[in-house]
Structure formats: structure tokens, C-alpha cells
Amino acid sequence: MPFTATVFIGTSLDGYIARPDDDIEWLTSRGERAGDLGFFEFLDSVDAVIMGRNTYDKVAGFGEENWHFGDRHVGVLSTTLPQDADPRITVYRDMDGLVADLDKRGTKHVYPDGGRLIQSFIRAGRIQQFVISVAPVLIGAGHRLFGELLEDVPLRLDSAADVGGGFAQLRYTVEK
């Protein structure tokens, strides 16, 4: 059976995941007041974390004490990151190779992280659920969570909740 993938991410109310310069302080500073928004419980449900290159660079820059992935398989989709860049990760050059390796590993539940990577997963029809924590801020410009699509992606709202700190958490299932 193919793996399932769930997006778990924070956005501004106007749909951005980072400022144009990749800054996410607007999210992290507000997130501190809200707690982990259920992230660590979610992370316990996944057996693989896949990141885009920019997200990997950001996460790696947080330091070893903030590498929360334990012994889960961690992959980075990148055409430029050296294969031996980090012993904790597997570097994938393309989506087909990534999907084939996850299937070969018997991966059950994937956490894709990073705007362009999530967009690639959406276009490939590999996302089953979205958990989007909306921060109480408009930032006006930056990197959008969603990009252009070839066709609509119909969603079913599973829940909308006040999760503290002014955040609303929206949970959607992709309807097939």
C-alpha cells in the first residue's frame, strides 16, 4: 500500500509560510505563545520526514538540539545538495526516486515540509491531509504555501479549532 502524506504547517492569515527573505520570526514568536500546536503528537505518527532544500537549510541551522526527528527517515529533495552533506539525511534528486525509495522502505506516513516540496507533493497527488495552523498576522508578501495547480484539489473540512495564542488550526482531508 502506498504511503500517506500529511502537511502540518503554519501560515500567516494571508497564506504565507515565510517572508521574501525566508524569515519566519513572525511565526515562531507567535507560536511560542501558542505552544507546539500538536506538532510533536503529529510527529509521533510519521515514519519519514521529507524536506525541500531551503527548509533543510533552515532546520539544520537551528542546531542539533532542535533536530526533533529522532531515528525517523529524513530525506531532502534537492538537485544541488551533496549526497554526503549530512549523515542524518538521504538526498533525493527527483520526486520519482523519492517516492520509489519510500515505497521500497515500506514507509507508511510521510511529513512533507517546505513550500515548493509541498507543492510538488500536491501536484503528484500524494497529499491526503492538511493541518494548517493560521497565525494571527498579515505579512503581505513572501513565500506562499500553495502555488499554481493544473486542476482543483477538492477538500473536506474535518475541523477548525482555536488552539491558543490567536491561532486557528484547520484540518482538511483531500477528497479523491
Rank of each mutant, 00 (worst) to 15 (best):
W67Y: 09
W67N: 08
V91A: 03
T79Q: 12
A85H: 07
R93I: 00
A85C: 12
W67R: 05
T79P: 08
V76S: 01
P87D: 12
V74T: 11
T80P: 10
G75P: 00
W67D: 10
D71I: 13
A60R: 15
E64K: 13
H68K: 11
E64L: 14
T90S: 13
E64I: 12
S78Q: 07
L77H: 04
F69G: 06
F62K: 09
Q83V: 14
D84F: 01
D86C: 07
H68N: 11
H73I: 11
P87S: 09
V91F: 00
L81R: 12
D86A: 10
E64Y: 11
V76F: 05
I89E: 08
G63V: 10
A85Y: 05
I89P: 02
E65L: 08
F62H: 15
N66T: 11
A60I: 01
Y92V: 04
V76Q: 01
G61M: 07
G63H: 08
R72M: 04
F69K: 03
P82G: 01
H73D: 08
N66K: 15
R88I: 03
I89K: 06
G61A: 11
H73M: 14
R88V: 05
E65K: 14
G75Q: 06
V76H: 00
P87H: 07
T79S: 14
H68I: 01
G61D: 06
P82A: 14
G63R: 08
E65F: 07
V91Q: 01
R88M: 00
R88N: 11
R93W: 04
L81E: 04
P87Y: 04
D71P: 12
D84Y: 03
V91D: 00
E64C: 12
W67L: 07
E65M: 09
G63M: 12
V74W: 02
E64W: 09
G70V: 10
Y92R: 00
P82D: 06
T79F: 03
D84G: 04
F62Y: 15
T79D: 06
W67H: 09
T79C: 08
S78I: 13
F69R: 05
N66P: 08
